[in-house]
């Protein structure tokens, strides 16, 4: 096979993006060349993008081989599982109706989906780093900066098997003090430091 799988997928992504964009752009008036509407430039952009995506796709059929890394079965299964987890969490939390505003629904859905994705070892770094990042967002406004830091550090440090609890604890203390000093004491950014529900 001479197929360049990476380029093939790149081409597909570009085409897909352009087609979806073109479709969404149907809502926007094109206008005239003189008074271009909001849809004119997007239309041009997506048409060009489809063209380039198409050429990338076609050339990829002959310029290989350039295969992707092989995925294990766990890794393959984790992707749809994470997507399902995302939507399930989204609708459950939205249905609970207790966390309003501030994107708690979106944040918790991302967080759970990232955790599910992290189950197979191959996706652990990808899942946990993002899980830690979104946990930071979830905890920040009501939990305060310190709690958000602890959550983010603990979750993301699981991504590296080298970590030991003692080291993580030391790092938490160091980073909490450092962030407090830099962002609260020096820069005085507008954010709660301590939990609000206490």
């Amino acid at each position: 096979m001479k197929i360049n799988t990476k380029d093939l997928l790149s081409g597909i992504i570009l085409i897909l993006f352009a087609v979806i964009g073109y479709w969404l752009n149907q809502d926007h008036a094109l206008g005239t060349a003189r008074r271009m509407g909001p849809g004119y430039m997007p239309m041009l952009t997506f048409v060009i993008l489809v063209g380039i995506g198409g050429i990338v796709f076609l050339l990829a059929l002959f310029s290989g081989p350039n295969p992707l890394e092989n995925w294990t079965r766990g890794e393959i299964l984790a992707v749809p599982a994470a997507i399902i987890a995302f939507f399930a969490t989204y609708f459950i939390v939205a249905g609970l109706n207790i966390f309003q505003g501030n994107y708690y629904v979106l944040g918790s859905a991302i967080f759970v989906a990232c955790l599910v994705l992290a189950i197979p070892p191959g996706w652990r770094a990808l899942g946990l780093v993002h899980a830690g990042f979104s946990l930071f967002g979830l905890l920040l406004e009501q939990g305060g900066l310190m709690l958000a830091l602890v959550g983010c550090i603990v979750v993301s440090s699981v991504a590296d098997p080298d970590h030991r609890p003692k080291g993580v604890l030391g790092m938490i203390i160091f980073l909490c003090v450092l962030c407090w000093w830099v962002f609260i004491k020096e820069l005085d950014i507008r954010v709660n430091v301590w939990p609000q529900f206490l």
């Binding site: 609260i184 004491k185 020096e186 820069l187 005085d188 507008r190 709660n192 430091v193 609000q196």
Partner: peptide
């Protein structure tokens, strides 16, 4: 108390 403590967080820069 949203920003209790802000007065004490007088930064060196601002201070």
């Amino acid at each position: 108390m949203r920003f209790a403590g802000t007065t004490r967080r007088r930064s060196v820069i601002v201070g």
